[in-house]
Amino acid sequence: MSLKKKPLKSKPVCKVTFTLAKEQAKGAANVHLVGEFNDWEIGATAMRKQKDGAFTATVDLPTGREYQFRYLIDGDVWISDPEADKYAFSPFGDCENSVVTV
Rank of each mutant, 00 (worst) to 15 (best):
residue 76 D to P: 00
residue 32 H to L: 00
residue 79 I to C: 03
residue 73 I to D: 07
residue 36 E to Q: 14
residue 84 A to F: 14
residue 74 D to L: 00
residue 38 N to R: 03
residue 5 K to T: 05
residue 35 G to M: 03
residue 17 T to P: 03
residue 61 L to E: 07
residue 65 R to F: 08
residue 76 D to R: 01
residue 56 T to F: 07
residue 13 V to Q: 14
residue 22 K to Q: 13
residue 94 D to N: 15
residue 8 L to R: 13
residue 50 Q to M: 10
residue 81 D to H: 06
residue 97 N to D: 15
residue 84 A to L: 09
residue 18 F to D: 01
residue 46 A to G: 12
residue 58 T to C: 06
residue 20 L to R: 06
residue 45 T to K: 14
residue 20 L to K: 04
residue 57 A to H: 06
residue 82 P to V: 08
residue 79 I to L: 06
residue 41 E to H: 06
residue 13 V to A: 08
residue 98 S to M: 02
residue 27 G to Q: 06
residue 14 C to G: 09
residue 39 D to S: 13
residue 57 A to T: 03
residue 37 F to C: 01
residue 28 A to Y: 08
residue 65 R to W: 08
residue 44 A to G: 03
residue 1 M to K: 10
residue 16 V to F: 09
residue 8 L to W: 15
residue 99 V to M: 04
residue 82 P to Y: 14
residue 65 R to P: 04
residue 27 G to Y: 11
residue 11 K to W: 12
residue 85 D to M: 05
residue 63 T to H: 04
residue 39 D to H: 13
residue 23 E to I: 02
residue 31 V to A: 02
residue 93 G to T: 04
residue 84 A to R: 09
residue 80 S to C: 02
residue 91 P to A: 13
residue 2 S to W: 14
residue 42 I to H: 07
residue 71 Y to T: 00
residue 95 C to V: 12
residue 63 T to D: 15
residue 31 V to C: 01
residue 95 C to Y: 12
residue 90 S to Y: 13
residue 15 K to C: 03
residue 35 G to T: 05
residue 93 G to C: 06
residue 4 K to I: 11
residue 12 P to F: 11
residue 87 Y to M: 04
residue 35 G to S: 05
residue 95 C to D: 04
residue 97 N to V: 02
residue 24 Q to G: 01
residue 21 A to F: 13
residue 12 P to C: 05
residue 84 A to Y: 15
residue 88 A to E: 15
residue 21 A to M: 03
residue 56 T to A: 02
residue 37 F to H: 12
residue 68 Q to F: 06
residue 102 V to M: 09
residue 72 L to I: 08
residue 46 A to W: 11
residue 56 T to Y: 05
residue 87 Y to P: 00
residue 95 C to N: 07
residue 33 L to F: 10
residue 91 P to F: 15
residue 66 E to Y: 13
residue 100 V to L: 04
residue 9 K to Y: 15
residue 31 V to K: 02
residue 62 P to W: 13
residue 13 V to S: 07
residue 14 C to S: 15
residue 32 H to Q: 05
residue 4 K to V: 14
residue 58 T to A: 11
residue 49 K to S: 00
residue 13 V to N: 07
residue 46 A to M: 05
residue 96 E to F: 15
residue 44 A to Y: 10
